[in-house]
């Protein structure tokens, strides 16, 4: 029984309850950071770290938080973890920190984090909340990496900063601009919902 719950908690955010293509959360950052694989990976790792630890911490505190100020407490704790990510990146990965610029701070506003806290961590035990947070972060990560793969390849002809397509390739500048994010995300959501999710339902 317990093992089943754990399995379900872990697998749901990866598939039929994915934060990006099912819950349509965290779209702002999905559109903003996915024009380069490298930036996307660091950003999503930051989100995964923050979702997991803030879900865990808030689940620990869940029986003590006065419900009328719970959102303040949630924001405070999420912000703390994000600032830690920012400080650590600045000290140990300065090049990456410089490239990501304002986006690290914007992890705070990612609705997935607060969404998982409100919807899951406040009703469940700490370890289970940690798993849910991690899995949600992971579900977010792989979708964003898929989008970034398409956008970087079509937009700059390279992957991970290395040139893949030859000089014959004309960069689709629109792909690395915000509209490109909308196009790729929308197509991805459509394809997944029409194929994989329809089959699962039938």
């Amino acid at each position: 029984m317990a093992k089943n719950t754990l399995r379900k908690t872990f697998l749901e955010p990866l598939g039929k309850n994915n934060p990006v293509f099912v819950q349509i959360l965290g779209i702002c950052s999905t559109l903003a950071v996915t024009n380069k694989l490298q930036n996307t990976l660091v950003m999503t790792l930051g989100v995964m770290f923050t979702t997991a630890l803030s879900s865990f911490t808030l689940s620990l505190l869940r029986n003590h938080i006065p419900s009328r100020i719970r959102m303040m407490v949630e924001t405070m704790i999420i912000a703390t973890f994000v600032i830690i990510v920012d400080i650590v990146l600045k000290a140990f990965y300065p090049e990456m920190w410089k490239q990501l610029g304002p986006y690290v701070g914007l992890i705070i506003t990612n609705c997935i984090i607060m969404g998982r806290v409100e919807a899951f961590a406040l009703q469940n035990k700490p370890m289970l909340s940690l798993v849910d947070g991690l899995a949600s972060g992971l579900g977010y990560t792989y979708v964003l990496l898929a989008i970034a793969f398409v956008r970087e390849l079509l937009g700059t002809g390279s992957l991970w900063g290395f040139r893949i397509l030859g000089s014959w390739w004309t960069n689709w500048s629109i792909m690395i601009m915000p509209p490109g994010g909308f196009f790729v995300l929308a197509i991805l959501i459509w394809v997944i919902r029409e194929t994989i999710m329809k089959e699962a339902k039938a």
Partner: peptide
């Protein structure tokens, strides 16, 4: 009181890591 304590702990933690790095 709860908010005060949470805030205090959060600031302590981030300030500590900031000073270390």
């Amino acid at each position: 009181l709860f908010m005060f304590i949470v805030t205090f702990l959060c600031i302590l933690l981030t300030a500590g890591i900031y000073l270390l790095t």
